[in-house]
Simulated scan of single mutants.
Amino acid sequence: MFGFTEAQIASFGLTFGVGGFMLYMVFIVGQLAWESKAGKFGTFVLFLALAFGMVGFVAKYLIQWYLTR
């Protein structure tokens, strides 16, 4: 499709699609902290607990980038 292979389209979707979804999840966690009036420590705990899974995805992407250089 449009001169791209299936692997290129999948790589683009995984990188930018999931990345955009992760940014949206950060917005949701921030909105949750704001509406619940969690305070500084509560906001930190929310981001630590709810957004910690995203660190693994970003680390995986960075490790792949580093090893393929």
Rank of each mutant, 00 (worst) to 15 (best):
M1K: 12
F2L: 10
F2D: 09
F2A: 15
F4Q: 07
F4W: 11
T5E: 02
T5I: 06
E6I: 11
E6W: 14
E6C: 02
E6K: 15
A7E: 04
A7C: 01
A7R: 04
Q8H: 12
I9H: 01
I9K: 11
A10S: 11
A10N: 09
A10W: 05
S11N: 03
S11W: 00
F12A: 13
F12L: 08
F12T: 08
G13C: 05
L14E: 07
L14V: 06
T15D: 11
F16A: 05
F16I: 03
F16Y: 12
F16E: 02
G17Y: 03
G17D: 01
G17T: 05
G17P: 00
V18K: 13
V18W: 14
G19T: 01
G19F: 00
G20T: 03
G20E: 03
F21N: 13
F21S: 15
M22A: 14
M22G: 03
M22Y: 14
L23E: 11
L23F: 09
L23R: 03
Y24K: 14
M25Q: 09
M25P: 04
M25I: 06
V26T: 08
V26L: 12
V26S: 08
F27M: 14
F27A: 15
I28V: 07
I28A: 10
I28L: 13
V29R: 02
G30N: 15
G30V: 06
G30K: 01
G30T: 00
G30S: 07
G30Q: 07
Q31N: 08
A33W: 02
A33I: 02
A33D: 02
A33T: 12
A33N: 02
W34I: 07
E35K: 14
E35M: 13
S36I: 05
S36Q: 09
S36W: 08
K37F: 03
A38T: 10
A38D: 00
A38S: 15
A38L: 13
G39Q: 11
K40C: 00
G42M: 03
G42W: 01
T43H: 06
F44C: 04
F44K: 13
V45E: 01
V45L: 10
V45M: 12
V45K: 06
V45D: 01
V45N: 01
V45C: 03
L46H: 03
L46W: 05
F47E: 07
F47T: 09
F47P: 00
L48K: 06
A49T: 08
L50K: 02
A51C: 12
A51P: 03
A51V: 13
F52K: 02
F52P: 01
G53R: 06
M54W: 10
M54V: 09
V55D: 02
V55S: 06
G56L: 01
G56K: 00
G56A: 06
F57P: 05
F57D: 05
V58M: 10
V58T: 09
V58D: 01
V58K: 07
V58E: 04
A59M: 09
A59S: 06
A59D: 01
A59H: 03
A59R: 04
K60M: 10
Y61F: 10
Y61G: 03
L62Q: 07
L62V: 12
L62G: 05
I63K: 08
I63R: 08
I63W: 01
Q64K: 14
Q64D: 13
W65F: 14
W65K: 08
W65A: 13
W65I: 10
W65D: 10
Y66I: 15
Y66L: 15
Y66E: 14
L67W: 13
L67Y: 08
L67V: 15
T68V: 12
T68N: 13
R69G: 15
